[in-house]
Design a protein around this nucleic acid. Structure first.
Length: 103
DNA sequence: AGTTTGACTGGAG
DNA sequence: CCTCCAGCCAAAC
């Protein structure tokens, strides 16, 4: 495996996140898989943590593999609920129901 | 240049 | 349901 090109990886992540439809979600590991670097779920998180509001990316539509919101990001849950997404009593999303299916 | 951190993950306890 | 943990690997220290 060649060394990862962070410049390209970052752009791929942006382009993928930008495609997530309103009312649907995906998770870090899935984005990593789509970029061709399935072992870099953490790196996807690192990239998204640096996204600014000016970039206008729907990064709130990205949750963890268990359907949980980002710890410490207070408005994450309400941003998703504003798109019609319902949380279970344990504070998790039903991924079966909301997962974004790539065409 | 070596160590710790982190918007992760899946499995164990 | 929750916490903890090993494996993960580039970024930040």
């Amino acid at each position: 495996m060649p060394k990862i090109d962070m410049d390209l990886f970052t752009k791929d992540v942006y382009n993928i996140v930008k495609e997530i439809p309103f009312g649907q979600v995906t998770f870090y590991g899935e984005i990593a898989r789509l970029t061709g670097w399935p072992q870099h779920a953490r790196l996807v998180g690192t990239v998204l943590s640096k996204v600014t509001p000016e970039q206008k990316l729907p990064c709130h539509r990205v949750v963890d593999s268990q359907g949980r919101t980002v710890p410490g990001w207070e408005s994450h849950r309400q941003l998703l609920e504003a798109e019609g997404i319902v949380f279970s009593a344990s504070g998790r999303i039903n991924m079966k129901r909301y997962a974004w299916k790539v065409k």
